[in-house]
Design a binder for these strands. Structure first.
Lengths: 225, 225
DNA sequence: CGGGAAACATACTACTGAGTATGACGTTGT
DNA sequence: ACAACGTCATACTCAGTAGTATGTTTCCCG
């Protein structure tokens, strides 16, 4: 991650260093997404104004509307960002080698690690679920929201598949696979609702949360090695 | 328990407020609360206007502002309503007779039954949590929000106490009691995010959800009879 | 029966905030 | 050197909505 906090000061001196970096990776958008994530996490979607995000950037509306057509699109992009983080971490594990037990455990721990590390994005993802429940926004944007939920369901499917595979070995036991994956993710997502990173002992704390909540998740489906 | 007591409203004595409120306090407020709950669930807090609630009532703003000083207070009342439903159902069980195992299981099933039955209110309660994360509203109303969270924590404490009691017998096993109660409630609350009541087989469906998710919750803390 | 208070409806105000139109500034290509 | 484009800032518009001020009806109580 790049904590690039571009101070304003539109002097374009220094030849190309700053600008080159900005342009190359499309970092202008990324900076916006990051600021938006921070604001959305802090104040929620509706309570966050575009001006708030702009302030956080040290810029104005113009900058944001130059890259995003609407507030909703910005939110969607933040959401996608968060989901991408999760998918990149979990999908390789889910499709990798190892027993269902080992894989599920790895997935749980990786997911929890993501929650605690990228909590800013993850809370936005949760807000996406809230938004889904609400009958939100315009008719056309509901399509995009549907797509985000598809992603989410795909992600849940990764867990469901491992669970199903493990049920064959009697590694796990449950009735409804869909319910089981929902229960597991409910536990794994819970920490984002209350966890706030502290400077001191941050690592210890995190490990404790990861260990315990992955244990809860595994036990909830009656995992046996 | 400490039923928080909101100062406006011409009634509301200091004692226990449970069902008495429903009867005595007149249907006017209750009708408003119910309509508000419906709207808040459907569109979320910020997306719901007072006029929306009024429309649902077949009335106008005047009616609502006659009983509630602000939109936030209305929300708080809906939240309290939801919490009261839960407390009335669970507290007797938590403080009642029986083994920790039996009590926790009863609590889980009762909580789930409440979720599915009063889903309108329960989703609003969840929004309350979201609001808590956000730095919301005016400085004075944050106090009330704090009180709601106190209620919520009290509720969580009921689960925590039973869990602690059961850990002594090796009925349950976990490290951090606070984490354990959060994990259990995370599972129990999950169905409100996706459950939508259907007319047909509604009873069958509900029972299935209740049975499975209470099982997940019990297993998550390694419950053994 | 009349006066007053509760229970609303109606008609405002005031303000926030999303989205736009346009201009300013720099960069790049030729 | 100039034209064209990308990248923003500034200054607007305008719709939605929380809250208020005031009128109107109904009901109760002496």
């Amino acid at each position: 991650m790049f904590p690039v906090n571009v101070e304003l000061s539109p002097h374009s001196i220094s030849g190309n260093i700053g600008l080159a970096e900005l342009k190359e990776a499309g970092n202008a958008r990324d900076a916006i997404v990051e600021a938006a994530a921070k604001c959305f996490m802090h104040s929620g979607y509706s309570e966050t104004s575009i001006d708030d995000v702009a302030d956080d950037l040290g810029a104005t509306k113009g900058r944001i509307y130059h890259y995003y057509r609407s507030k909703a699109e910005l939110f969607f992009d933040v959401h996608r960002h968060g989901m991408a983080i999760n998918l990149n971490a979990i999908e390789p594990i889910a499709r990798g080698e190892g027993s269902p037990y080992d894989r599920l455990q790895s997935m749980c721990k990786a997911h929890l690690a993501n929650m605690l590390e990228h909590i800013v994005y993850q809370r936005v993802v949760l807000q996406g679920v809230e938004m889904h429940l609400s009958s939100s926004t315009t008719p056309k944007q509901r399509e995009k929201l549907k797509l985000l939920m598809k992603e989410r369901e795909f992600y849940e499917g990764l867990f469901r598949d491992v669970l199903l595979e493990g049920r064959q070995n009697n590694t796990f036991s449950f009735e409804n696979p869909s319910f089981a994956s929902k229960a597991v993710l409910a536990i794994l997502n819970n920490p984002v609702l209350w966890y706030t990173p502290r400077k001191t002992q941050s690592v210890q704390e995190k490990n404790q949360v990861i260990e315990e909540f992955s244990a809860f998740a595994m036990q909830s489906v009656n995992a046996k090695q």
